Simulated assay, not measured.
Amino acid sequence: MTETPPQSDTETVSFGYQDIDAREKEGRVGAIFSGVASRYDLMNDAMSGGLHRLWKDQFVARVKPQAGEDILDMAGGTGDIAFRMVKSDAHVTVADINQEMLDVGLDRAVKRGEDRLVWSQQNAEDLVFPDRSFDAYTIAFGIRNVTHIDVALKEAHRVLRYGGRFFCLEFSTSEWPGFSEIYDEYSHKVVPKIGKYIANDEDSYRYLIESIRRFPTMPVFADMIRDAGFANVKVEPIMGGLVAIHSGWKV
Rank of each mutant, 00 (worst) to 15 (best):
32 I>N: 04
58 Q>Y: 13
121 Q>R: 11
242 L>F: 03
101 M>V: 07
93 T>P: 02
63 V>I: 13
157 H>P: 10
24 E>N: 12
187 S>F: 10
23 R>E: 10
53 R>V: 05
1 M>F: 12
52 H>K: 09
217 T>Y: 12
33 F>C: 09
143 I>W: 01
50 G>E: 08
89 D>I: 07
136 A>Y: 08
14 S>W: 07
170 E>H: 04
171 F>M: 07
175 E>C: 13
140 A>F: 01
162 Y>N: 14
53 R>L: 11
103 D>I: 06
134 F>N: 01
190 V>D: 12
196 K>S: 14
224 M>W: 06
244 A>L: 02
52 H>V: 05
84 R>N: 02
218 M>W: 06
131 D>E: 14
49 G>K: 01
203 D>M: 06
151 V>C: 09
80 D>L: 07
124 A>C: 10
193 K>D: 13
239 M>A: 15
134 F>Y: 06
231 A>Q: 15
103 D>E: 05
115 D>V: 14
11 E>Q: 10
141 F>Q: 02
115 D>Y: 14
71 I>F: 09
11 E>A: 05
182 I>V: 15
27 G>T: 03
7 Q>W: 07
93 T>N: 02
238 I>S: 02
31 A>T: 09
70 D>K: 06
139 I>V: 08
199 A>D: 11
44 N>S: 05
98 N>E: 12
133 S>F: 13
94 V>I: 15
